[in-house]
Design a protein around this nucleic acid. Structure first.
Lengths: 145, 145
DNA sequence: CTAATGTCTCTAGTAGCTATAGCTGCAAGA
DNA sequence: TCTTGCAGCTATAGCTACTAGAGACATTAG
């Protein structure tokens, strides 16, 4: 049996994150030691590794919840799991396309900057006037890192 | 003078978002009508358009705050603005690279899926075992849409 | 035995909004 | 003039996926 710290170290998930996953019901409440500390067995380790890897691939927690309940029923057809993965792939591809448009526009801005004063800086100018853009990259929003 | 609704319609920013920008100090508090409603002039419209476009290019609000205060001082050299834009470009490029790795891995998973049962589904299997992956795409996290 | 580290619960904070509740302002039609 | 209905107001809470902190207890190394 592993304490939460050992489990976290083995799976590469941080300790508070493990507790968070338990809180939102992604991980079942584990056994407790006599001193009320969480104790995890190999099944929990496996489940947490699954979550960790899915998160690394960008799946949102809701999708992971679905994938986990699917993996608990090995006899079902895997079309549902396939659909979730395909949706995630499509989301990733859409995001890449969008970011490439942003990249182009940012490159244009940066390249045109003449390194003079703000008054004639292309960066500031272009930001203030969307008409100078090549594409309708509008519809973005989403944090960077 | 524009009411907040007109301003929002003209710039493509939602009404609550305009109020939010004011609240966090990105937009100055505007004049008010006799009935306490916000009234915006052309300068505010321009400033909001600047914010909108910067957001569309993925700049975080903190960076936009810096860019705005730079644009208020046209005599300064534009190297600071240039640096912010370059940092944003680098962030976008890093994110694209990361997402491309995810895309590859997801494609491998989806292609290998034999459309049988969950028990022998490659999607579920690969998610449970990171050793089957080609790359260390670990270090991701970030919502998709 | 003591000190250091690990773990416990609970709360609040992050980014960038969005949604809701319950109120008032204002313009147009009957 | 009345009323209907949309637009606007404030304030608070919610969203994702965590992360950070406080203050108390458990466990372990020396």
């Amino acid at each position: 049996m592993l304490t939460i710290g050992k489990l976290a170290a083995e799976t590469g998930v941080k300790v508070p994150t493990v507790r968070y996953y338990e809180q939102i019901g992604l991980l079942p409440p584990p056994e407790r030691s006599s001193g009320n500390q969480r104790l995890y067995g190999p099944l929990a380790r496996q489940r947490l590794a699954f979550i960790r890897h899915s998160r690394a691939l960008g799946f949102p927690l809701d999708a992971i919840r679905d994938l986990l309940s699917l993996s608990d029923r090995p006899d079902l057809p895997c079309s549902a799991a396939d659909a979730i993965a395909k949706a995630q792939l499509a989301a990733v591809q859409a995001r890449i396309a969008q970011l490439k448009a942003l990249e182009l526009e940012l490159q244009r801005m940066v390249i045109q900057c003449a390194h003079g004063t703000i008054a004639d800086c292309r960066v500031i100018e272009v930001l203030g006037d969307h008409g100078q853009c090549a594409h309708d990259h509008h519809a973005v929003a989403e944090p960077m890192e």
